[in-house]
Design a protein around this nucleic acid. Sequence first.
DNA 1: AGGGCTTTCTTCAGGCCGTGATTTAACGTG
DNA 2: CACGTTAAATCACGGCCTGAAGAAAGCCCT
Lengths: 413, 413
Amino acid sequence: MAERGKQTVRDLRRGSRSTLLQRLYFEGPLSRQELGQISGLSAGSVSNVIGELLADGLVEECGSVESDGGRPRILLQVPPERAHLVGVDVGETQVRVALFDLGLTELAASDHPLSDCGHDSDHVVELILTGLAEVLHATGTDPDTVLGVGVGVPGIVEQGDPGTDGLGIVVHSQTVDWDAVPLGRMLRAGTDLPLYVDNGAKTLGQAEMWFGAGRGARHAVVALFGSGVGACVIAEGARFRGATSSAGEWGHTKVHVGGRLCRCGSRGCLEAYVGAEALVERWGRAPAGSSEKAGLAALLAAAEAGEQDAVDLLAEAAEYFGAAIADLINLFNPERIVIGGWAGLMLGPRLLPAIRDAATAYALRFPRAQTSIDLGLLGPDAVTVGAATLPLWHFLQSGGELPARLSAAAATG
Amino acid sequence: MAERGKQTVRDLRRGSRSTLLQRLYFEGPLSRQELGQISGLSAGSVSNVIGELLADGLVEECGSVESDGGRPRILLQVPPERAHLVGVDVGETQVRVALFDLGLTELAASDHPLSDCGHDSDHVVELILTGLAEVLHATGTDPDTVLGVGVGVPGIVEQGDPGTDGLGIVVHSQTVDWDAVPLGRMLRAGTDLPLYVDNGAKTLGQAEMWFGAGRGARHAVVALFGSGVGACVIAEGARFRGATSSAGEWGHTKVHVGGRLCRCGSRGCLEAYVGAEALVERWGRAPAGSSEKAGLAALLAAAEAGEQDAVDLLAEAAEYFGAAIADLINLFNPERIVIGGWAGLMLGPRLLPAIRDAATAYALRFPRAQTSIDLGLLGPDAVTVGAATLPLWHFLQSGGELPARLSAAAATG
DNA sequence: AGGGCTTTCTTCAGGCCGTGATTTAACGTG
DNA sequence: CACGTTAAATCACGGCCTGAAGAAAGCCCT
């Protein structure tokens, strides 16, 4: 078990590059000195590896800091403009494509509504490719500087064999009626850029982990509360994927065997009790024809105004949600739970205390005591950011691997 | 995230040793040739590393195989008698200590009932140390040849800082009323051997993964059904521990929020519906004063005889169990689910089809299709075997690290 | 019996890697 | 302007894995 195959002496260098690059990326300008301290590498190796990264243009010097009477420390950072990333959000109502620099600053975005043709997969692919072309053209960005395109989709994503250039990526989604859509192959027909696809909720969770309330945690669960509910599990600092990357399908966890019918066809799912869709439907008093978001806002307003049935409904939702979070705590033993998603952010301020109490009541004492439960910091627009972290993660993990043409440019840029 | 710290060129060798040792251990006699094929190492490296392992006595030659007209292949194996392991099961009714050789053949065992003094921790520690001395004495085993002592206990085990020689190990158990018992320190006072402690259900799961129905799976969940219920989660071939090693507390997952009162104090836990204790109590017709095991056997017999309330109770248990397995499938996305534990093995043949059906009904289609659900192969006595895998795992993982004195003996043994 | 063939295993040069000591660089202070 | 101090660069050294070349150990055919 767990044999991790052969390792050549060259992998060491990749590892060192990756470590240093990650530290610089996340912990912002640092000197070689500090880098040595926190990475455990010797000063010699740090100098050596940083030299390489400087030559590749993946790191640049940025000012210096005096050092108590000695030679000043030179600060280093990853130059944000060195490369670009694309994040795509295939949402319920629109396809959003955004272009970022390495620092994940949004440089351009393109939105296309999905009203007419629904989620026909050909149409979605076309919109993604159009949007991609648009953001590149609008900013005059050379496609060779794009590290990759990350796509967040609804449903379950089968990653296929790695190393096949994304060709094996297949998407299954009951909600938008995609059955084994070969998204990888379809997109590959329209672009040469490296492709990364994952569930949209998972990419949102990833964003929350990197830049939101999850920062710094190595074991965490981001509980996403939107129209439905889902979760993104992080263990040892990395996405927990399971055998076929579908781990974390929390919305269809049973909280009441034999209970309410869920849109997945089963009964008693969490989502049938606390998803925004379920809540609005159960309340039944939202203005006819209003959007789900407006409906939930109306429910919240009613509860704030003291209407008993709204108050009760939300209290019940908080209990179910907290109980289901207790399951997450018992099963995954995270150090932090982050509640995100648009509905989570909308209801969170009101429900958080009740959710915490329910989690305490339903979880085992010991793991509950190790876990904090907090609200997320990012809105649903962070799905594109999260999607862009997919190629970024690959980049950092590989120690700064660049597409051939970009690498040729080296430090001359 | 996921920086894995520095790696020196020496770690490569440790990795190679570990890989080869593991392959030889699990895939049984192999030639250098085959070893090179499956490990990906070059023939030169294999020869080199195996030479080292031979000199350390961790590997021995055992016969040869003709090779179609060429030089015959020399087969290699890990010599079972090279070292010993101790596994301890702190159970509900007794403390069992067993001595194994490297091949996990049981050489001696010692049982001490726990009837009188209950689970007083001092008493348990005393029994463990006595049993340890007994098995060593009975077989005339030199303590220096023992790689370590693995202990399976009820409750949650806090591992403490690694590298502190097990001193930080603390056990919390609501069922036997242990609150922060410093088992590591207590045992350390009576022995110098390396100590490893984990939850008993988890060690049973480990045994099932290594030598039972879980063999070969890299992502699996062993669902343990005994007096209560628990789970051992394996991801990427290794125990999924979570932040403080308490992950996998499945028994207190909610299947019915606000439902039956559980012995943990909460309501609606799985264990309140399908644990042997709960089933016997709910049936209410077991002969007074009989053991839990006898009670469950009586319930099963009644159901086989067609008594309606027994049939219904078991059918309901299968549905809850299956639904909770569906949760495991949705959340962990394993490739295999193994149902073990004494109650699981007793009821399994009757309930398995219903459990599978319930899991199918309650889980999402895609991950369910990737998962097989089968019965375990090992009885509860495998807890000691599982406990012994704890030091064994360390041994294999470290590439065959030996205690100082044993290593001095080298291949002379 | 002996040479040739096949296959397995060992040996060895070559290219890299990280370490740790030593040098060099760059800055304040007296 | 020399001196002390701290940061970065350099370099010899011991290790590692690879890949090619060589040695070993059988079989087969003449």
